[in-house]
């Protein structure tokens, strides 16, 4: 099913016969809404506020929403750790993974949707089979191969295994199947080969799907943790997720690090939040597109 039809679906509107949104109902719904909103927003507010507290203040007044005194201690101490390096690593890895994923997934998706070649159906069935393998099960297997190839503790080990995502191929295939073939035929009649057709005719038309895939890939690799745990044990190669997880290795809530971990988490969240706010509707589509593979 296309994601576009979903968004275009008419919203149920106009209160029906006998339906009155009574004030009692409104009060109940709004009360529930506000309760949930507090539960959902409060943790982020706490994170934001605690990042600017002193250790003592954070421990003594965890509920208070005003830092007293306002402190940049956490920020300064964080800069003394390897945090800036981890941030850079995360950016480098995320950009490489995203570019490769978008390119490779759309190429494969296009071929599986439009080009006819021997073995296509088999490849697609294999892809479906591969998609059903739970990611967490692959941690040890991936380490074994990374180690065997001799790329453990290197950027390629961080990037290459994430460079193609089976679900991404699937999303692009679904999308390309909806584009009317007439346009490509016109390009072909004009003498364009498959690569040229793909690059200058098909890809520009696929903009919405490409944006969705870009965002999913960005989000996926920025937030990835498991793979980075098994691909390196060198703190110079840590990404943010791995690095921050190592900050808590003290285990069960060592009480005096909270402003630092809150600040670190906050900084890590900012890029995700920016992407999310600007491309919100693509997230919605992505969530539903991802759902349909199930």
């Amino acid at each position: 099913m296309s994601t576009t039809t979903r968004t275009a679906a008419p919203k149920t509107s106009a209160p029906a016969v006998g339906e009155r949104d009574t004030s009692v109902k409104k009060v109940v719904v709004y009360a529930a809404l506000i309760a949930f909103a507090i539960i959902y927003i409060y943790p982020f507010v706490v994170q934001l506020v605690t990042a600017f507290k002193t250790n003592a203040d954070a421990v003594d007044h965890p509920l208070s929403l005003i830092p007293d005194p306002f402190s940049l201690d956490a920020w300064n101490r964080l800069l003394d750790t390897q945090f800036p390096l981890w941030f850079t690593n995360s950016f480098v890895v995320t950009i490489f993974v995203t570019v490769m994923r978008v390119l490779f997934c759309s190429m494969a998706g296009y071929a599986l949707a439009r080009l006819k070649f021997f073995g296509r159906d088999t490849v697609f069935l294999l892809l479906l089979a591969v998609m059903s393998v739970p990611g967490i099960v692959l941690l040890i297997p991936k380490f074994l191969v990374i180690n065997y190839l001799g790329i453990y503790n290197s950027y390629p080990a961080l990037i290459l295994p994430l460079a193609v995502d089976a679900a991404g191929v699937f999303i692009m295939k679904q999308f390309f199947e909806q584009i009317p073939p007439s346009i490509e035929e016109a390009a072909r009649i004009d003498g364009a080969g498959p690569f040229r057709t793909f690059w200058s005719v098909v890809l520009p038309m696929a903009r919405p799907a490409l944006i969705t895939l870009t965002i999913l890939s960005f989000q996926g690799s920025w937030n990835e943790l498991g793979h980075f745990i098994i691909a390196t044990n060198d703190s110079d190669l840590y990404t943010l997720t791995r690095g921050l997880a190592s900050l808590t290795s003290g285990g069960l809530g060592s009480g005096n690090q909270f402003p630092i971990t809150m600040m670190a988490g906050l900084l890590m969240t900012i890029p995700s939040a920016i992407v999310f706010i600007f491309f919100q509707r693509y997230f919605t589509q992505g969530a539903n597109a991802g759902a349909e593979k199930g």
């Binding site: 994170q47 954070a58 937030n223 943790l225 921050l244 809150m262 988490g265 999310f276």
Partner: peptide, 13 residues
């Protein structure tokens, strides 16, 4: 859309 690491840090607190 937020990293499980960031959320876990908040919940630990």
């Amino acid at each position: 859309v937020v990293s499980s690491v960031a959320i876990s840090l908040v919940f630990l607190f």
